[in-house]
């Protein structure tokens, strides 16, 4: 795959940059330049938060060429908190842990590598929202002598 293809979408791929419609305020991802809500131009870049929840998901056991090294993997539709649905892989999670409605957050990962020699394509995936460990005031914390 020519590197220009992934390159021209780097803002969307790397950091989930969408668009906002100046007309009606709809936030769009993927960028589509014409607002589907009001049909007016929507070309103002808008960074999506990357937070959302699983709308649906599946496990791919028979991957297409180029994705064998990650299979079996989970792909999902994510309902972003700004409204749009987005297709992406889930990562850092096993199929048995996923459920519809699971809160997820965007991370930037390797989408595919094209073998040992090709350009590495990075892009958004989603993972379960990182759990914060409970930090109790630690009595064992070292004190200055």
């Amino acid at each position: 795959m020519h590197p220009a293809r992934a390159w021209r979408g780097r803002s969307q791929r790397y950091r989930l940059e969408g668009e906002i419609c100046e007309g009606c305020g709809a936030r769009l991802f993927p960028p589509r330049d014409i607002c589907p809500e009001c049909q007016r131009p929507a070309r103002t870049p808008y960074p999506l938060s990357g937070r959302g929840e699983v709308y649906s998901y599946t496990v791919v056991y028979e991957p297409p060429a180029g994705y064998e090294e990650q299979a079996p993997y989970i792909v999902a539709l994510i309902r972003l908190e700004e409204g749009p649905l987005v297709s992406a892989m889930l990562t850092d999670v096993g199929p048995e842990e996923v459920y519809i409605g699971m809160p997820v957050e965007m991370v930037t990962r390797v989408l595919h590598r094209q073998g040992e020699h090709g350009v590495i394509a990075y892009g958004y995936k989603f993972r379960p929202v990182l759990r914060r460990t409970v930090m109790l005031p630690s009595p064992s914390a070292p004190v200055t002598a």
């Binding site: 990650q70 991370v107 930037t108 990962r109 990075y122 995936k125």
Partner: peptide, 13 residues
Amino acid sequence: PGPDEDVVTMSIE
């Protein structure tokens, strides 16, 4: 690291 991780992805996070 998972199969989709490398120094770049870890650095980004």
